[in-house]
């Protein structure tokens, strides 16, 4: 077993885990933060995307001990506690950018990361290219792309 310590959604957390424990398992099974999903478990679908020190990372392809001391944000920590939804979450709701919702947490975490890297004015081509690592099997992406463009703009005002 190995001791891990990190900050998740602003709170210091610790755990004693098998070295094989992936970050996504630590979040879901030890911290019970089940908003981060496991889709493909092969680093392709992006349902497990979280922010590690401000960068989008696939939590299924990272051991918990690799992010020792890091600052992690999951979908649960994106909006202020008891506050309104994060502008990107609100844009997904407003634009009906989900059907089953399974990919949505990863989509939103990736979308916020895209805005951080590419700015608040995103064209469709950029969004589609940047979403290469996030797979949705329901929507055909159309409303997701719309939501991200709207969410990016809304983040500038927030």
């Amino acid at each position: 077993m190995t001791a891990v310590a990190m900050t998740v959604n602003g709170k210091a957390v610790t755990g004693d885990v098998d070295p094989r424990t992936l970050l996504v398992q630590f979040l879901r099974e030890h911290l019970r933060l089940t908003g981060t999903h496991v889709g493909c478990d092969t680093s392709q679908c992006g349902a497990c995307v979280v922010h590690v020190d401000g960068k989008a990372v696939k939590a299924c392809t990272t051991f918990a001990w690799q992010v020792q001391g890091a600052n992690i944000t999951t979908i649960e920590g994106l909006a202020e506690p008891n506050g309104p939804l994060h502008p990107m979450q609100e844009a997904f709701r407003e634009n009906h950018a989900l059907q089953c919702g399974y990919c949505t947490p990863g989509m939103i975490m990736s979308a916020v990361d895209i805005v951080w890297r590419k700015g608040n004015e995103l064209d469709e081509k950029t969004i589609r290219h940047e979403l290469e690592g996030n797979i949705c099997r329901c929507t055909g992406y159309h409303n997701i792309v719309k939501a991200i463009a709207a969410g990016a703009k809304a983040m500038a005002k927030a």
Partner: peptide
């Protein structure tokens, strides 16, 4: 290479 999350690691 890969996608943005892969390129971060």
């Amino acid at each position: 290479i890969g996608d943005p999350a892969v390129r971060h690691r």
